[in-house]
């Protein structure tokens, strides 16, 4: 399955979920598929999109939260699976775009490529609803069940590495604009206060 096709299937099933994207390929592909503004696209802190999403999910248990992570990012913070398991956020879905390479730096192979079983690692960490999916039809069929019931859910989306080195444009917002767009979107949608009366 191509990453872009996986994103299209995810977008089809998104519903009202708020999304947090790891930097790089995952964020660029999600932006290309959705142009979604109520998504937080990490510009840095590689590895920590899952922790950011966990914080949002813990703060707003009524809000469906997705994290679209990437294998290179997850490997920089595998401990997030332990934290996620202990917190057991019912509203969190963790999707891993697993292409086995560091895509944005030229599809450089990842460490231990082809031998790492991320879904097994998630289960071993204590997230029992963890699956691996490698084709779009199976993803399309599996998502209704993965989105039903309580999270956390971990889905390793095994996609093909893109060796064409095509440049997928990132979303066009700077870091602070991303903050205010995302925060204002959540204020409007949830009726919460993210920023104070003076705007900070």
């Amino acid at each position: 399955m191509r990453a872009a096709d996986a994103m299209a299937v995810l977008a089809k099933h998104r519903g009202d979920a708020v999304v947090v994207c790891a930097l790089g390929m995952a964020a660029n592909e999600w932006w290309a598929a959705t142009q979604s503004e109520d998504t937080f696209y990490m510009h840095g802190a590689m590895g920590f999109a899952a922790s950011f999403a966990l914080g949002l999910a813990a703060a707003r248990p009524e809000l469906p939260v997705w994290v679209i992570n990437a294998d290179g990012s997850l490997c920089m913070n595998l401990g997030c699976l332990l934290t996620e398991a202990q917190q057991a956020p019912r509203n969190l879905r963790h999707f891993l775009v697993d292409n086995g390479v560091y895509q944005t730096v030229g599809a450089v192979p990842m460490v231990n490529r082809g031998r790492t079983d991320f879904a097994a690692m998630a289960r071993a960490a204590g997230i029992p609803r963890a699956v691996a999916i490698s084709d779009t039809a199976a993803l399309d069929a599996a998502l209704p069940e993965l989105l039903a019931g309580d999270g956390p859910v971990f889905a390793d989306l095994q996609v093909e590495p893109d060796t064409s080195h095509r440049a997928i444009p990132p979303m066009p917002y700077e870091g602070p604009e991303m903050k205010y767009r995302f925060g204002r979107a959540l204020e409007k949608r949830l009726g919460i206060t993210v920023f104070g009366p003076q705007g900070y």
Partner: peptide, 26 residues
């Protein structure tokens, strides 16, 4: 107080950053 013990300190930074957007002081 929602307590989120973490496995590495930078996780705590990211958890609090996400909570910020949920309108929660952390």
């Amino acid at each position: 107080m929602r307590h989120v013990p973490v496995a590495r300190e930078a996780e705590a930074i990211a958890v609090c950053s996400g909570a910020f957007f949920g309108g929660v002081r952390s």
